[in-house]
Amino acid sequence: MKALIQANYEERLSRYATLLHGTEPPGLAAKLGVYAQLLRQREIHGDRLWKIEPMLYPLMLSAETDLHLATARLLEDPRRADGSVFAFLSFCQKNRENISWAMGTPPVDVLDAQVAALESHRSTITAIMGRRDRFFAHLDKKYFLEPAQIYDDYPLEEKAVIALVNAVIGVIGEHQWKLRESANFHVAEFFAAGVENMVRNLETGRRQNYPGQLD
């Protein structure tokens, strides 16, 4: 029994690591890096960013939606999806005594703190799920008639979404570290650097090909 539970635990953790840190297709960390850096470039350049390249605006909105959907997939109600991180943490709590970390059995307070860390973002989770369920996955009649209303009914702060995603990555990362005292490289930084370089190259190209447009 203990061996089966441990194997189940490690298999689940491995799947989460791929969903978070994979690059083919890009995982949650990669999506976070792209989105967060696009926001940072907007802070740096303001509306001038859209002069550097008008396509950056729809790209940022697409990256935002992609991040929301990927996050929602991991934070489903555990009664609906066994792949939810909440379901994983519930499994860990129920089977704690049959799970082994490098330093022994997972402490109750650590697992409880992980659940609490995610629940502290409940309002953000609710808004992401609302947008996903009523607009992106299934279009309610209300939002068919008034698409922009979804943003008023389910408001989201950009920084709150980033904080939630980092919380998810942190929970899984803690399990990885406690299990083997090792964790995945946070690929968000690599993708963020790529976006920064892209904007810099686009700005250089705009200046060369269309002199005076950015002045």
Score class of each variant (00 low, 15 high):
7 A>T: 15
8 N>M: 10
11 E>A: 15
19 L>Y: 09
21 H>K: 13
21 H>L: 11
22 G>F: 05
23 T>G: 12
26 P>F: 08
26 P>K: 01
27 G>F: 03
28 L>Y: 00
28 L>I: 00
36 A>E: 09
36 A>G: 11
42 R>W: 05
42 R>Y: 10
46 G>P: 12
47 D>V: 15
48 R>S: 15
49 L>F: 15
52 I>Q: 06
53 E>T: 08
55 M>Q: 13
60 M>Y: 09
61 L>I: 04
68 H>P: 02
69 L>G: 12
74 L>Q: 03
75 L>K: 02
75 L>Y: 01
76 E>I: 06
77 D>W: 01
79 R>F: 00
79 R>C: 03
80 R>C: 06
83 G>N: 14
85 V>W: 04
88 F>E: 06
88 F>P: 01
89 L>F: 01
89 L>Y: 00
90 S>A: 13
91 F>E: 00
91 F>T: 05
92 C>T: 08
96 R>E: 04
96 R>L: 02
101 W>I: 07
104 G>I: 00
107 P>R: 02
107 P>I: 02
109 D>V: 10
109 D>L: 11
110 V>D: 08
111 L>F: 04
113 A>Q: 11
114 Q>F: 11
115 V>M: 14
123 S>Q: 12
124 T>E: 07
128 I>K: 08
132 R>P: 08
136 F>T: 10
138 H>L: 02
139 L>E: 03
140 D>T: 00
142 K>I: 14
142 K>L: 13
142 K>W: 10
143 Y>T: 05
144 F>E: 14
144 F>W: 09
145 L>E: 15
145 L>I: 14
147 P>C: 04
148 A>T: 10
149 Q>K: 03
149 Q>N: 07
153 D>M: 00
156 L>T: 04
157 E>L: 04
158 E>Q: 07
160 A>E: 12
162 I>F: 01
170 G>S: 03
170 G>A: 02
173 G>Y: 08
176 Q>K: 10
181 E>I: 14
181 E>G: 08
184 N>L: 12
188 A>Q: 14
190 F>T: 11
192 A>S: 15
195 V>H: 09
195 V>W: 07
196 E>G: 05
197 N>Y: 11
199 V>W: 03
200 R>A: 13
201 N>L: 12
202 L>Q: 11
206 R>I: 02
208 Q>V: 11
210 Y>K: 10
214 L>V: 05
214 L>D: 04
